[in-house]
Computed example of a mutant assay.
Amino acid sequence: MPEPFKNLINAHTVHHAGLHLHRVWPALDRQRFEQHAAQGLDGLEFKARAMQLADALQATLPADFAEAAHVIEASLAEPLALDAAGEPTALSEAQSQAGLSGWVVWSLGEYVARRGMSDVPRALACLHALTQRFSAEFAIRPFIQQHPDQTLAVLQRWVHDPSAHVRRLVSEGSRPRLPWGLRLHALVANPAPTLPLLRALQDDPSAYVRRSVANHLNDIAKDHPDLVAQWVREHQQAANTQRTALLRHASRSLIKQGHAPTLQAWGLGLGLQGEATLSLSTDHARVGEDVGLHVTLRSTAPQPQPLVVDYAVHHVRANGSTSAKVFKGWKLTLEPHAGRTLDKRHSLRPVTTRQLYPGLHQIDLRINGQTCASARFELLA
C-alpha cells in the first residue's frame, strides 16, 4: 500500500528544518520550534501539517521580518536543477542534506505570506528564493489579493527572470482558480491583468513554464470561454509546434464541453458527417469493476473529417439525480466514406474526487462536442 500523501511532511521534516534554521541562526530555540511543529503531527492531514509548521516558524523566528527572511534564505538548499526540457529534477541526497528544499518550503512560504504584508518588496524577494526550491505559488496569492498593483508589477519583471522556476511562478501563482490555493476573485471576474504575463510566457523555452501558462488559460476558460477561444484563434497564427501544443492543452476543457467557438478555432466546428454507434460490454457492473466501450463510426462525407471523440458518464448522485463528467476518448481523422472502430475500458474504481453510487448510468458519445449516441448500464453496489 502506498505511503499516505500527508506523510510527505513528517517528524524528519521538522527535525531537518530545525537543524538548518539553527545552523544559520544559532539563537533559534530549536527545541521549542520542533516541539511546536511536531505536536500531534500523526493525527493531522497534509495541509494542517504544513500550517502547523508555519505556526512554529511564526513562534520562533526573529520578530523583525527582514531578519527572519534572511534566516530563511540562508537555510535553503541549492535551487532545483532543470533538465534539457526545462523540467525540475530531484535533489540528490547530498544536496538535500545541505539545506531546506521540497515540501517544507510550503510552510516557509506560508510564514512569509503571514508576516511579510508590511514589507512587500522584501517578502517577494524571499518568495523569489523559495520558489526555486519548491514553489511559492500558494504564498504569493495573498500578495496579489492585498497588493495587486505592486505585486503584478514585480511579476511583470519576473517574466524575464533567468530562472524557469521564477517564470513559472508568474503564471502559476496568478492563476485565478489554482487548486489548493486562495481563489483570486478579482482575477476570476476580470483576468485582463494577467494576460500580458501569459503572452510573454507562452513561448517560454521551458516546458515547465509553458504547461503552467496552458493551465492558467484553462482556468480563465471556466469563467470566460469566449476570451480563451479568441486567444486561441489569435495566437494560432504563426504558431510553432510548442505553442500549438500549449493552445491545445489550454483548450482541453472547452473542447470537452463542446464550446462552439473553440471547436471552430481547431477546425472541429462540424459534427460527424455519417453514423456513430456506441455499445457497452455489459448492462450491469459493480463498483470496482470496469465497463468496455465499443464505438463504430461510418463516414458519409467526401472529404476527411478531423474528429475529437469523447464520452460523458452521467454519474448518479446520493440524492438520485445525475451529474455528467466528460472523459477523453480519441483524436482521429476519419477518411472519406471510411469506417473506424474504437474500444476503451472505463474504470468504475472509486477515486478521492468522486463517490460512486448505485443506479442507472448513461454514457453519451460526444463527437466534436455533439452527442451522437448513448448507452446505459446499471451500477450495482
Results as ranks from 00 to 15, higher is better:
173 G>A: 11
144 I>G: 04
128 H>T: 05
160 H>V: 07
196 P>E: 07
159 V>G: 02
158 W>M: 05
203 D>L: 03
187 L>F: 13
198 L>H: 06
121 P>V: 06
165 H>P: 10
179 P>V: 11
145 Q>G: 10
198 L>S: 01
171 S>E: 07
157 R>I: 04
125 A>I: 02
198 L>I: 07
154 V>H: 02
174 S>T: 12
170 V>P: 09
134 F>N: 02
160 H>W: 06
189 A>I: 15
141 R>M: 02
199 R>E: 08
206 S>P: 15
157 R>E: 08
170 V>M: 12
125 A>V: 03
135 S>W: 01
195 L>D: 13
118 S>K: 07
173 G>C: 06
156 Q>D: 10
121 P>I: 07
163 S>R: 09
145 Q>S: 08
153 A>C: 03
195 L>Y: 11
134 F>G: 01
119 D>A: 05
178 L>N: 13
170 V>L: 09
193 P>K: 12
202 Q>E: 14
188 V>K: 15
175 R>G: 13
156 Q>G: 09
206 S>R: 05
176 P>T: 15
204 D>G: 02
194 T>L: 09
204 D>T: 03
142 P>A: 10
198 L>C: 03
185 H>V: 15
123 A>C: 11
131 T>W: 00
142 P>I: 07
172 E>Q: 05
200 A>V: 13
188 V>Q: 13
133 R>A: 00
151 T>H: 06
199 R>T: 15
129 A>H: 08
118 S>N: 09
163 S>L: 09
166 V>T: 12
189 A>R: 04
150 Q>D: 08
174 S>L: 04
132 Q>P: 00
149 D>K: 09
139 A>F: 05
131 T>N: 01
151 T>E: 06
154 V>S: 03
161 D>Y: 11
197 L>R: 01
132 Q>T: 05
164 A>V: 10
196 P>K: 08
167 R>I: 03
157 R>K: 06
161 D>F: 06
157 R>S: 12
139 A>Y: 08
127 L>P: 01
199 R>I: 15
174 S>I: 07
181 G>Q: 11
141 R>E: 02
171 S>Q: 08
119 D>E: 07
130 L>H: 06
193 P>N: 13
188 V>I: 14
151 T>W: 02
165 H>F: 11
166 V>G: 03
126 C>D: 06
119 D>R: 06
146 Q>A: 13
161 D>A: 09
180 W>Y: 14
